[in-house]
Design a protein around this nucleic acid. Structure first.
Length: 155
DNA sequence: GCCAACGTTGGC
DNA sequence: GCCAACGTTGGC
């Protein structure tokens, strides 16, 4: 199957591209997605070696700051069962867990963060899901063309 | 099954 | 801090 491309949002105060880079093996599990649409992408569509743009939200600058890849495909998010954890879900059942996560691995940090503003000003990116009104998904698909364009802008 | 109330996200 | 967008919840 053809490689797919994604964009993950993260608030750098919670988890930044540098946090990922400094994680053991430059890898982390992407926990805490609690939206069904995003869950479906994680559980059903993300495949090993898919490309992931890493975006900083609620940050300065607002920008794609680097990229990474999927290294482990969808599996149950353990934090949904951890009482007291910020992502604990009292309704989650072990037999049929509703929430999933993937593992991602750092590839590169951009020399030039690709700001939200710059993406808005790039005609090639006008259909990018991130730029559509009211989009609040924390993980979302991007096309191959969009992915490559953002990488080019970041160099 | 409708819909108002409420909570969250995230840019500004 | 404001507010638009939109998902979720719960009464009916």
């Amino acid at each position: 199957m053809a490689k797919k491309y994604w964009l993950f949002k993260s608030e750098p105060g919670a988890f930044s591209i540098d946090d990922l880079k400094e994680s053991p093996g430059k890898k982390t599990f992407w926990d805490g997605v609690r939206n069904y649409q995003a869950r479906n992408f994680i559980r059903d569509e993300m495949k090993k070696s898919d490309g992931v743009l890493f975006y900083h939200s609620n940050a300065d600058p607002l920008a794609v700051v680097g990229y990474c890849e999927i290294v482990k495909e969808g599996y149950p998010d353990h934090t949904q069962f951890e009482k007291g954890h910020i992502h604990f879900d009292p309704k989650a059942k072990k037999e049929n867990p509703p929430w999933f996560m993937v593992d991602i691995k750092f590839i590169d940090k951009f020399k030039n963060p690709v700001t939200l503003q710059a993406m808005k000003e790039n005609k090639k990116l006008k259909n990018m899901r991130l730029l559509q009104r009211g989009n609040r998904l924390s993980v979302m698909p991007v096309t191959k063309e969009e992915f490559e364009e953002v990488l080019k802008m970041g160099k």
